[in-house]
Amino acid sequence: MKLFSDTITNLEQGLNYSSIKNKTIAQNLSNADTPNYKAKDVQFKNHLNQAQHNIEAKRTHSKHIPFGSEGQNYQITARNDVTYNHNGNSVDLDKEMTELAENQIYYQALVERINGKFNSLKEVLRGGN
């Protein structure tokens, strides 16, 4: 028996992604003046699209359509195709600050949602009082 639903697991994975994204943005910002530093991005959508092609699950009949799931990971890639500064650096401060603000909103929404889930569980454990 599972103690928590898949929703909490998915929210946890979202928080992990947001944390990695925040660290990557902070690293980019701290290296904004480093010559030849290539800004990093956290790739999730590309990885998700690739994983959807490798889905496999238990089939109870040979005519059932095959599908399944794989673990989801995040990939950190460097932005090698752009240069914003004369020293070969690819950090765009405006872009990084925009992504940081977006990520903070995303993280806060996940935290509020997971708090709601835990509050619901507390209500159930208290007997609905």
Rank of each mutant, 00 (worst) to 15 (best):
R113T: 10
Y17T: 14
G71K: 15
E12A: 13
G14Q: 01
Y17E: 04
G127V: 05
D94M: 02
A39S: 10
N129D: 13
T83L: 01
Q108S: 09
Q43Y: 10
L93W: 06
Q52L: 14
I8P: 03
Y37G: 03
N16F: 08
Y107P: 00
A57G: 07
S69I: 07
I76Y: 08
L100F: 07
L100W: 03
E123G: 13
H47I: 15
E12P: 06
K95P: 10
G116C: 08
G14R: 07
V42A: 07
G14D: 03
G127Y: 03
A78D: 14
Y37C: 06
N22T: 05
T7Y: 12
T98G: 06
R59S: 09
E70V: 15
M97I: 02
A57S: 11
V124L: 11
A39G: 03
V82L: 08
T60L: 13
E96L: 01
E96N: 00
N103Q: 02
T24L: 13
K122S: 12
L3N: 09
D92G: 08
N16M: 13
F67H: 14
N115V: 11
T24N: 09
G71N: 11
H47V: 15
Y84Q: 02
L121A: 13
K40T: 06
Q27A: 12
N49E: 14
E96C: 00
L125R: 04
I65V: 15
L29A: 01
F67Y: 15
N36M: 01
I8D: 00
P35C: 02
T24G: 05
E112W: 05
G71H: 11
Q43G: 06
E102I: 07
A109L: 06
D92I: 10
Q52Y: 08
P66C: 03
L11T: 00
Q43R: 09
S30C: 04
K122L: 10
Y17F: 15
V82T: 06
N73L: 14
H53Q: 13
P35M: 04
K45F: 09
Q13E: 00
S5G: 04
E102N: 11
L15A: 00
Q13P: 02
